[in-house]
């Protein structure tokens, strides 16, 4: 239904215009209750989601809050040019892409593996218990999770404790003060928080696989691993493909909270993402034009990627996303 709504964009408004106007008027009168229930909400979403787009004009001006719109100085693409010549921004872009790809790959692999293993547990109570516990971190805020991560990875934290007792390291590793570890720490934090939650959708897909396929494989003498690789995995492939394609649109969404909360002066070169860049230039330094340009860049890339993803999905014969 949604596909229709979105792909047939030009058709959508037709009933309002054209010859059938009188009928529409009587319809509107008949449906005034529905209109009263929805049009104020439409006004609400336009105000809160569409009106701010007007603010994008700031990126093409040398915006000064004290001046009226008519008095602002227009500068074209100056701020965008500055962004792409700015080492700072390029570094931020690198961090964003790197962390987003790491999160994506780690997130997918761990969730699929965990779902496959959970699926093999036959005792319902045990399976339920593990699932409930694995969902727990998903409901904790990033503030709490980064607090836990900081405690766990501290020089006297449990991770260094265990590694020292196993004689894998001689001195505690300063996980949070070494820029080289930061991407890995962020990736691991994401996995810890979301891996259990991300299995839900795969487990649901697995439960809808036809049991006859397993029986047939059994008769053919397939081992447990064979069944996993040749029945379960192909069974959830469409889900994996859809989720992968959907995540392409989030390629510049490396997150903001975890980097902001875990980052510190020592790792800033690895920790800053586009969102932090926007916050820093915009809110903290008052360079609204440059920050808005950074934000626009992110949105435009995201939307473009999403359209590409949608096109790929169509080519692959999967359900379209839009």
């Amino acid at each position: 239904m949604m596909e229709e709504t979105l792909t047939k964009k030009p058709v959508v408004r037709k009933p309002k215009k054209g010859k059938r106007q009188p009928m529409t008027w009587s319809l509107i009168k008949n449906q005034r209750q529905l209109i009263w229930m929805s049009v104020p909400l439409l006004a609400y979403i336009i105000l809160f989601s569409y009106v701010p787009i007007w603010g994008w004009t700031m990126a093409f001006q040398d915006y000064k809050p004290a001046l009226d719109f008519a008095d602002q100085k227009w500068v074209g693409f100056k701020h965008f040019k500055f962004l792409f010549l700015d080492d700072n921004f390029l570094r931020v872009l690198r961090n964003t892409l790197a962390m987003s790809v790491i999160n994506l790959v780690l997130g997918f692999v761990t969730a699929i593996v965990l779902a496959l293993l959970l699926n093999e547990i036959k005792k319902v109570f045990w399976k339920r218990t593990v699932q409930t516990i694995s969902y727990l971190p998903h409901f904790l805020s990033w503030v709490i999770v980064t607090g836990i991560v900081a405690t766990t990875l501290a020089s006297d934290g449990i991770v260094n404790d265990v590694l020292m007792k196993l004689h894998l390291i001689k001195e505690p590793i300063l996980w949070l003060s070494e820029g080289h570890y930061f991407w890995g720490v962020v990736g691991a934090s994401h996995v810890w928080k979301e891996v259990g939650w991300n299995t839900i959708i795969y487990l649901a897909a697995m439960s809808s696989i036809d049991p006859a396929l397993y029986e047939a494989a059994e008769i053919d003498g397939a081992s447990r691993y064979k069944k996993m690789f040749h029945v379960t995995l192909p069974g959830i492939k469409p889900t994996i493909v859809i989720l992968l394609i959907m995540s392409i649109g989030h390629i510049l969404e490396a997150g903001f909270e975890v980097q902001y909360l875990l980052g510190n002066g020592l790792v800033v070169d690895w920790a800053e993402t586009i969102d932090i860049f926007v916050l820093k230039y915009g809110i903290a330094q008052g360079n609204y034009s440059l920050a808005t340009a950074g934000g626009i860049f992110k949105t435009v890339v995201s939307v473009t990627m999403l359209l590409i993803a949608n096109w790929i999905a169509k080519r692959l014969g999967e359900e379209r996303l839009l």
């Binding site: 959508v12 439409l42 701010p52 603010g55 649109g249 926007v278 609204y288």
Partner: peptide, 20 residues
């Protein structure tokens, strides 16, 4: 429906949101 669904895919961004 269209106007609402589109809001899932774009975001005006932090600074314009702040000014709103």
């Amino acid at each position: 429906t269209l106007i609402f669904v589109l809001t899932m895919y774009f975001n005006a961004g932090l600074i314009p949101g702040y000014f709103l």
